[in-house]
Amino acid sequence: MSSRTCLNCGGTAIDVDQARGDAVCMGCGSVLEDNIIVSEVEFADRGGSARAMGQFVAGDSGGKNPNFGDAYHTGRESRAQTLSNAKNNINTLGRQLQMNQHCLDTAYNFYKMALNKRLTYGRRSAHVVAACLYLVCRTEGTPHMLLDLSDILQVNVYVLGKTFLVLARELCINAPAIGTGPQLTITVTS
């Protein structure tokens, strides 16, 4: 029940149902309010941590999403965070392979291209990072194999290979076959 009064009959017995989002006069049955939006924040326990449920909408917000803190990102903030994480992961994995800064920067540029073409969606970040690094290995002719990345990440080499092939095809990057460099000929004399 509520402290409101009905405009039709003047009754004060008003039933406000938050689940349905309406207010109904109990005296005459008139619907006084429909689709009520409340500015309450409800919290739920998820795995030992409290999380906000729903979305807070303030009357003076003008349709903008409020910022709940550093863990809540929208638009450009989220993209910047994604790129920052990718750069850190590329640098970490590339340093384990002892790759130079030029290769790491090129891999980061490949990642940005993949992100712009929405090729990162539905794929694990580590797989995309590894595929970008392997693209650099193939285009720059470094002595690394996909198996090296697979061993470091503890990921099936075929999964990484599939991600690599999708990125190479969709980004239109010609990744030369391994071993296209100068051939070594050994002559055995008896």
Score class of each variant (00 low, 15 high):
Ser2Trp: 05
Ser3Pro: 01
Thr5Cys: 01
Thr5Phe: 06
Cys6Trp: 02
Leu7Ile: 00
Gly10Val: 01
Gly11Met: 11
Gly11Tyr: 11
Gly11Gln: 10
Thr12Leu: 03
Asp15Gly: 09
Gln18Asn: 05
Ala19Asp: 11
Gly21Pro: 10
Asp22Gly: 05
Met26Val: 13
Gly27Pro: 08
Gly27Val: 13
Cys28Gln: 02
Cys28Thr: 04
Gly29Thr: 04
Gly29His: 02
Ser30Val: 11
Ser30Arg: 13
Val31Met: 12
Leu32Glu: 15
Asn35Asp: 14
Asn35Gln: 13
Asn35Arg: 15
Val38Ala: 15
Val38Gly: 15
Val38Ile: 14
Val41Gly: 11
Glu42Gly: 13
Phe43Lys: 12
Phe43His: 11
Gly47Ser: 12
Ala50His: 14
Gly54Leu: 11
Gly54His: 15
Gln55Ser: 13
Gln55Ile: 12
Phe56Arg: 02
Phe56Asp: 02
Phe56Asn: 01
Val57His: 13
Ser61Phe: 07
Lys64Glu: 12
Lys64His: 11
Asn65Glu: 06
Asn65Gln: 03
Pro66Tyr: 01
Asn67Val: 10
Phe68Ala: 10
Gly69Gln: 10
Asp70Phe: 15
Tyr72Cys: 12
His73Asn: 08
Thr74Trp: 10
Arg76Met: 03
Arg79Gly: 06
Gln81Ala: 12
Thr82Tyr: 03
Ser84Glu: 02
Ala86Gly: 08
Asn89Met: 08
Asn89Ser: 09
Asn91Val: 13
Leu93Lys: 04
Gly94Glu: 00
Gln96Met: 09
Gln96Tyr: 05
Gln98Phe: 01
Cys103Asp: 06
Lys112Asn: 00
Ala114His: 07
Leu115Tyr: 13
Leu115Gly: 09
Asn116Trp: 04
Thr120Ile: 14
Tyr121Phe: 10
Arg124Glu: 09
Ser125Trp: 03
Ser125Glu: 06
Ser125Lys: 12
Ala126Arg: 07
Ala131Gln: 04
Cys132Met: 02
Cys132Asn: 04
Leu135Tyr: 07
Leu135Ile: 14
Leu135Arg: 07
Cys137Glu: 03
Cys137Gln: 00
Arg138Ile: 06
Thr139Phe: 05
Thr139Gln: 10
Thr142Gln: 12
Pro143Tyr: 09
Pro143Cys: 11
His144Ile: 08
His144Tyr: 11
His144Ser: 07
Met145Val: 05
Leu147Gln: 12
Leu149His: 04
Leu149Trp: 07
Leu153Trp: 06
Val155Asp: 04
Asn156Thr: 13
Val157Ser: 14
Gly161Val: 06
Thr163Arg: 05
Thr163Leu: 06
Leu165Lys: 15
Leu165Arg: 15
Leu165Gln: 15
Leu165Met: 15
Leu167Lys: 03
Arg169Leu: 06
Arg169Lys: 13
Leu171Met: 01
Cys172His: 11
Ile178Thr: 13
Leu184Ala: 02
Ile186Thr: 02
Ile186Leu: 04
Thr187Tyr: 01
Thr189Ile: 15
